Computed example of a mutant assay.
Amino acid sequence: MEELYDVAVIQGKKETLVVYKVKHLHRFKMKKIEKKMDRYLEDKYPKEDFILSSDYKIFLETIRLKERLKNGSISKKDAEKRFQDIVKLQKEKT
């Protein structure tokens, strides 16, 4: 999508977290962009459960978790727990 300039995706056991940053000039249309993105993901992957977030703190936490997984500095069990913490944080903000 042209309105976005950075995206990170992490898949947990039950759901998939998709965090993104929107270009500055498109921030006025945040709800519309999120709806469009949700529709696209649901059409393309109907069996997946997606959680979308444009929150910067959620984005940073997701990137940190992704880096730790890539480096192998976190176990799968701890990573899933951290993933659930990030999802919980996102749901609190909603």
Rank of each mutant, 00 (worst) to 15 (best):
Leu65Lys: 12
Ala79His: 02
Met30Glu: 14
Pro46Cys: 10
Glu2Ser: 11
His26Thr: 01
Val18Ile: 13
Met37Pro: 03
Ile58Val: 15
Lys70Gly: 05
Lys91Pro: 07
Val18Asp: 10
Lys70Met: 08
Glu48Asn: 05
Glu48Phe: 04
Ser73Ile: 13
Gly12Gln: 12
Val18Gly: 04
Lys70Pro: 00
Leu4Tyr: 03
Pro46Leu: 08
Tyr5Asn: 15
Asp55Leu: 04
Glu67Thr: 14
Thr16His: 04
Tyr56Thr: 15
Met37Cys: 02
Glu67Val: 15
Ala8Asn: 10
Ile33Glu: 02
Asp55Glu: 14
Lys36Ile: 02
Asp85Pro: 02
Lys35Pro: 00
Lys35Trp: 02
Leu69Ala: 03
Leu17Trp: 01
Leu60Gly: 03
His26Ala: 09
Tyr45Val: 04
Thr16Met: 11
Gln90Lys: 14
Ile51Pro: 02
Phe59Tyr: 15
Glu3Trp: 04
Leu25Lys: 12
Leu4Ala: 11
Met37Asp: 06
Val22Tyr: 02
Glu15His: 10
Lys57Val: 01
His26Cys: 04
Phe28Ile: 14
Leu69Phe: 00
Lys21Val: 05
Glu3Asn: 13
Leu69Lys: 15
Tyr5Ser: 10
Arg27Glu: 11
Ser73Arg: 08
Lys21Ala: 07
Ile74Glu: 02
Lys47Ile: 04
Ile63Tyr: 02
Val7Pro: 10
Ile33Asn: 06
Thr94Arg: 14
Leu25Val: 07
Lys31Ala: 11
Ile33Cys: 05
Ile86Tyr: 05
Asp85Val: 06
Lys88Ile: 00
Lys81Ser: 12
Phe59Arg: 05
Val19Pro: 01
Lys14Gly: 09
Ser73Val: 14
Glu2Gln: 12
Ala79Met: 07
Thr16Gly: 04
His24Gln: 11
Ser53Gly: 06
Glu3Tyr: 07
Lys70Val: 01
Lys21Ile: 07
Tyr40Cys: 00
Phe83Glu: 13
Glu92Ile: 06
Lys29Ser: 09
Ser73Pro: 11
Lys70Ala: 11
Lys81Trp: 00
Lys36Val: 01
Glu42Ala: 13
Val9Arg: 08
Leu25Phe: 09
Met37Ser: 04
Met30Gln: 14
Phe50Ile: 05
Lys91Leu: 12
Gln90Trp: 01
Ile51Ser: 03
Lys35His: 03
Lys29Asp: 08
